[in-house]
Design a protein around this nucleic acid. Structure first.
Lengths: 193, 193
DNA sequence: AAAAATACGGAACAATCGTTCCTGAATTGG
DNA sequence: CCAATTCAGGAACGATTGTTCCGTATTTTT
């Protein structure tokens, strides 16, 4: 009956993630989206509804991508402690590599929008819970295998890890480029395991 | 010669801090400022120049207030470790008390603006250095007094503390209201000292 | 070939943005 | 009193905001 879509919706969403991640919700204009997604205004609004809906869809997609890779990492990990250090080391690498760094899209969105948009607040809060659970299960497994000290209970440690991850992403977003700063933090974190 | 100002500039700045802190830079309109500061548009622009200048002045004032109280806390502290716990406990209390929580104005501004406004980036970065130094000196003093373990060097510990403080403020901004979450994080943090 | 559906560019929308300016009244120091 | 300055209020600015709509081209299915 009808003409097929010429663009790939997921690819467009990935583009939307990029620009929302970089500029934030309020900092991204409709024109920015048109320019960056390469879609016409009409296609954009026909496909995604409005700016807020597009943002929510972008954030959910970002969340899924991150959770998937996090789960995959722990599933394939032989040593949990090593896997945890890999996560942080990767965050540090990302923080240092570009001239500018975008931090974490979820953290940025939490700070900018969670107070003012209940839908975003729910996504952020759910994400926090899920990541916390992933960390918690990983820590438990690590403790069972004797790879992680069991002086701290797994839940506390998971929340602690999450907190430091957030902190590092803020540091990156703030433009910190001194590797020593990150390394000092990591040293302290992992002295606890 | 001239009529005296009817409003107190510092009080107006405190009002500006409140609303910028709550809504962010891009989320606060000129009309919001007029309504909340209780000044006319003309007085506002005559006094502070423009929105960005007002924001910078607000953020600097917020910074000074925080640094002053931080310095005062450590100067009067008999036990450094206790003082550090007080800082975090206070942050937790603030996070839980209001229905909505604003987090930390400096952290919020870092996430929203540091990438896009060099002037803000400099304030954020300077603040980070100063707070880090305050923590570092405090930790050193605590280690000398035998109140804090000297297994970690003071600089690392200071950066670690700063990182967790940022993380907690993000958590608060994200709307976390479960005291147990904060307590778990604090327990892990202070198991390191 | 006809009909249905979608893409596209761009015009156009009302609303809001940050900012400037004008007015007239109020208050101050000389 | 005079001159200078600041006040409040509101009109008005051009620019940009998010969004809608139109006309036309293109592609698909019947």
């Amino acid at each position: 009956m009808a003409r097929t879509k010429e663009f790939n919706e997921d690819q467009a969403l990935d583009k939307a993630i990029e620009i929302f991640w970089h500029k934030g919700y309020n900092g991204t204009s409709a024109q920015d989206l048109v320019n960056h997604l390469g879609l016409s205004r009409s296609s954009l609004y026909d496909t995604f509804g409005d700016k807020q809906k597009l943002f929510v869809k972008s954030l959910k997609r970002y969340q899924k991508q991150n959770l998937d890779s996090l789960n995959e990492l722990f599933e394939n990990a032989e040593n949990i402690k090593t896997a945890l250090t890999e996560i942080f080391k990767q965050a540090v690498i990302e923080s240092l590599q570009d001239r500018i760094t975008k931090g974490c899209f979820m953290v940025n969105s939490a700070v900018e929008l969670a107070m003012h948009d209940p839908e975003i607040a729910k996504i952020v809060h759910d994400n926090q819970k899920v990541v916390e659970d992933i960390f918690c299960n990983a820590v438990k497994k690590g403790q069972d295998l004797g790879q992680i000290s069991d002086k701290q209970d797994a839940r506390s440690l998971a929340r602690f890890i999450f907190n430091n991850y957030s902190g590092i992403r803020v540091l990156a977003r703030a433009g910190e480029k001194d590797k020593q700063v990150y390394d000092d933090i990591l040293k302290s974190i992992f002295s606890l395991f």
